[in-house]
Simulated assay, not measured.
Amino acid sequence: MPPRNVLETARHVVVEGPIGVGKTSLARRLAAHLDAQPFLEQPELNPFLTRFYQDPPRYALPTQLFFLFQRMDHLRELAQPDFFGRRVVGDYLLEKDPIFAQLTLSDDEYGLYRQIYDRLAPQAPTPDLVIYLQARPETLIARVRKRGIDVERKISDAYLTLLAERYSRFFYNYDAAPVMVVNSENLNFVDRDDDFRLLLERIEAMRGQRGYFNRGE
C-alpha cells in the first residue's frame, strides 16, 4: 500500500499516456511543483522519426531501436551516484516501449526487436507512483492536430486510435507500482491551476494500488 501522502515521499514519479494526452506538460509542471529533476524523453533526437511518419514500413525498425537504446541509456542514469537521493519526475516507462513496437513492426522485425529488448533492457527502477493520463481517441487526434508539431503531421488517426487502445490494455494489467488513472478529457493541468490542485489532492488521498480521477463537465 502506498504511503498516506504519496507525493510527500515519492522519489520517482512517472507520467504516462498516449501521444497527445499531455504527459510531458504535466511531468514538467509536477517536477516544478515538487522541486524535482525532470526526466523526459527527447524524441527530437531520433534521426529516423520524421522518415518513419513518411514511410512507416521502411523506417519502423530503426526508429524503434533508436528509441529503445535511447531509453535504456537514459534510465541507466538513474542508477548513477549523482542521481542518488534526487526526486525525479519522468514522462515514460521503459515497459511501454513494446507497445509501439507491436504497432509498427512486422512479425519478423518484432521478433528481432523482442530479442534485443529481452537481452539488453536494464532492470528499470520501479516508480513510486505512475500517473496514467487517458483521453478518447478523437480527443487525442484533435490535440495532436491542434499543436501542429511538424514531425506529427503524418500520424494517422487510425494509429492514434489503436495506440490509445493498446495503452488502455497495458495499464489494465500493470501492477508494478501504484497508479493514478486520470481521465484528462475535461482537464488542463498547464493552464488551469484548479485542475492541477485537484489532481494533487486526489493523489494525496490515494489508498491502495490504484486511484481514479475523472472530472465531468
Rank of each mutant, 00 (worst) to 15 (best):
M1W: 12
M1A: 09
P3I: 01
L7H: 08
L7Y: 09
T9H: 08
V13F: 04
V14I: 12
P18I: 03
I19P: 01
I19Y: 08
S25C: 08
L30S: 05
A31L: 01
A31G: 04
H33V: 00
H33R: 13
P38M: 14
L40F: 15
Q42T: 06
Q42G: 01
N46C: 08
N46K: 09
P47V: 04
L49I: 12
L49N: 13
T50R: 14
R51I: 02
R51C: 04
Y59K: 04
Y59W: 15
L65Q: 05
L65S: 06
F66G: 07
L68V: 03
F69Q: 09
F69T: 05
R71N: 06
M72D: 07
L75G: 07
R76I: 04
A79T: 13
Q80N: 04
D82K: 10
G85P: 03
V88G: 03
V89S: 05
V89G: 05
G90R: 06
Y92M: 02
L93M: 11
L94E: 07
E95P: 02
I99C: 06
A101G: 12
Q102A: 14
Y110C: 00
Y113V: 01
Y113S: 02
I116N: 06
P122T: 02
Q123P: 01
P125G: 05
P125Y: 12
D128L: 09
V130P: 00
V130K: 00
V130Y: 09
L133H: 05
L133E: 03
A142E: 08
V144S: 09
K146I: 00
G148A: 15
G148T: 01
G148S: 11
I149E: 12
I149A: 08
D150H: 10
D150L: 10
V151A: 10
V151L: 11
R153N: 11
S156R: 06
L160D: 00
L160R: 03
L162N: 13
A164V: 01
F170L: 02
F171C: 02
D175P: 00
V181T: 06
V182H: 07
V182S: 06
V182R: 02
L187A: 09
N188K: 09
V190D: 11
R192S: 10
D193H: 13
D194I: 10
D194H: 14
F196N: 04
F196I: 01
L198F: 13
L199S: 03
L200Y: 08
E201H: 12
I203K: 00
E204M: 07
E204K: 06
A205Q: 15
M206L: 15
G208F: 04
Q209I: 09
R215T: 03
